[in-house]
Each structure stands twice: as structure tokens, then as C-alpha cells.
């Protein structure tokens, strides 16, 4: 090729076009995070130290991690199970219009999070909320004080509000990836529906399911505004603890915040890594 000799030089000058973006990422993302990492391993005098990590092994911080992991895990698993079932029901709807409408609803609601969502749940499930009253007047069920929207049980309901539609959006393409020929071949070879799902359908969906669960987990783990609006300081979650160290609550040591942030990043990193692997597996089968 005549221009092959020009290639390397052209490539170098082309890379120059990416530099402004790289600099921006370095300045406002990479460098701050790396400095945070370094900071988490230094004491107040600036020497290498594991003291910050020792601080977060005290009960309150351990409990906040445990709470965050539990809340994220429960909402991820419930979201995945019900998202799978509802997603399949939506996928099988005979009317494309209805299907599109439900997908649009999921698209919108998965982004409804934070303060407005938390407040909406207070409106319906607060101590004098509509649903609370309806349960009491029509079903004779008193939700309070067993249940409270301001507690972890309430938080699970509120989180599921954005977790469910997210799972639906993630799993429907996976259903679409199940080729009709697989079902027909299995049927033709003598398999019934159960045998098809157990041996072919579910195994093929598994990578997408795993990808969905870890994404939902990460989604819940990093969430802050919903929990803060609902529970405030009554709820001990990692993100809320980290925020306290920023807003300068006296009880909270900035060093502990740095260490917690690093452990959170590690957890999120593991999630993203699993997600990438599961996703590439799902795609390999989709070809």
C-alpha cells in the first residue's frame, strides 16, 4: 500500500486529538482517585500507614459495609428474580405496542431515583401514607410499626423501584437472543418445555442473569440520595458514612472516609469485572 509509510505518523498526530479528553479524565477522575488511594495509606503526618484501614474495622464501619452489602444483595437478587419473570411476561406479550409501552415505562422509572423517589414512597407508605391507610381500612392490616418506610425494609421497597425496571431492560435483549430455532429443535427432538428451559433456555440466559445481578448490586451499592432522604442518619450505609466524612461531622474521621471509599471502589471494581466477563460470554453465544 502506498500510504503505509504515512500510517505511524498520522496515527501519532491523530492521538493528539484524544489528548484534551485524556487530560480532562486525568484531572477530574484518575488523579483525584489515585491521590485518594495514596491518602488512604498515609497517616496525618504523611507517612505510610494502615491506620485508616484499622479504623474502619471498628463495628460501626463494619456494620455499614454489611448493611450496604445486604441491602444491595437482597435488592439485586429480588430484582433479578422478579425482573426475569416480569421481563419474560413482557417479552411474550402479543402486542408490540404494549411491549414498547412497558419498556418505555421501565426506561423512565429506572432513572427515577434519589430524593423525588424517596419522597413518593413516603407519600404512599409513610405512617399516614395512602397505601398504609388503604391496608388499614380495607384489609385491617396495620403496617406500622412492624414495617417502616424509613427503615431497611422500606429501603428495600424503594430500591426495588429502580432495580426491577433495570433488570427488565437488561434481560429482555437476552430473551430476544434465544433463537426460535433452539426451541423448535429441542421440541422436534422430543423435549418438553421444562426440558428445554432446564437444558437450553436457562443455561444460555445464565451469563446475562449474572451480569444483571452484579450490575444491580453495584447500582444499589453506590446509591446515596434515596437512602439519605428516607432514613437520614438513622441508616448506616457505606455511602452515607463516606458522605459524613465529607460534610465534616465531628464523629467521623476523614481518614476512615478515604479507606471506606477505597474498599467501595474495590467492591465496585469486582462487580464491573464480573459484569464484563459475563457480558462477553453472553455475547459469544449471541452470534
Amino acid at each position: 500500500m502506498s500510504f503505509s509509510s504515512r500510517r505511524p505518523r498520522q496515527n501519532l498526530s491523530a492521538w493528539a486529538g484524544v489528548v484534551p479528553f485524556l487530560v480532562f479524565c486525568l484531572v477530574f477522575e484518575i488523579v483525584p482517585v489515585v491521590l485518594l488511594l495514596l491518602g488512604s495509606f498515609t497517616d496525618k503526618a504523611g507517612a505510610f500507614s494502615l491506620s485508616n484501614y484499622q479504623k474502619i474495622s471498628t463495628p460501626i464501619y463494619v456494620r455499614s459495609f454489611w448493611n450496604s452489602i445486604q441491602l444491595s444483595g437482597i435488592t439485586a437478587i429480588l430484582g433479578a428474580i422478579f425482573g426475569l419473570l416480569i421481563g419474560y411476561a413482557i417479552f411474550n406479550l402479543p402486542s408490540p405496542r404494549l411491549r414498547e409501552a412497558l419498556l418505555a415505562l421501565s426506561d423512565v422509572t429506572t432513572n427515577f431515583a434519589g430524593a423525588p423517589l424517596a419522597f413518593a414512597f413516603i407519600v404512599i407508605l409513610g405512617s399516614s401514607g395512602v397505601v398504609t391507610l388503604a391496608f388499614e381500612q380495607y384489609l385491617g392490616l396495620k403496617l406500622y410499626p412492624t414495617f417502616s418506610i424509613y427503615s431497611y425494609s422500606g429501603l428495600i421497597l424503594a430500591y426495588l423501584y429502580f432495580q426491577l425496571p433495570l433488570m427488565i431492560l437488561l434481560i429482555i435483549p437476552a430473551f430476544a437472543g434465544l433463537r426460535r430455532e433452539w426451541w423448535e429443535s429441542a421440541h422436534n427432538l422430543g423435549a418438553n418445555s421444562w426440558q428445554y428451559w432446564r437444558r437450553i433456555g436457562l443455561p444460555i440466559l445464565t451469563p446475562s442473569l449474572i451480569a444483571g445481578v452484579v450490575l444491580l448490586f453495584a447500582n444499589a451499592f453506590g446509591a446515596y440520595a434515596t437512602a439519605w432522604t428516607l432514613g437520614g442518619s438513622n441508616i448506616t450505609l457505606v455511602t452515607i458514612q463516606i458522605a459524613f466524612t465529607v460534610t465534616g461531622e465531628v464523629l467521623h474521621d476523614p481518614g476512615a472516609g478515604d479507606a471506606m471509599a477505597m474498599v467501595s471502589l474495590l467492591i465496585m471494581g469486582v462487580c464491573i469485572a464480573i459484569y464484563q466477563v459475563a457480558n462477553s460470554r453472553a455475547r459469544r453465544w449471541a452470534k
Binding site: R179, E181, W182, E184, S185, A186, R199, I200, P203, I204, W285
Partner: peptide, 9 residues
């Protein structure tokens, strides 16, 4: 079938 009908898993 035409194609791609083998169970990929």
C-alpha cells in the same frame, strides 16, 4: 434448520 439451530451451550 437453515442455520444457527445448534444449542450454543
Amino acid at each position: 434448520f437453515q442455520a444457527y439451530a445448534l444449542f450454543p451451550n
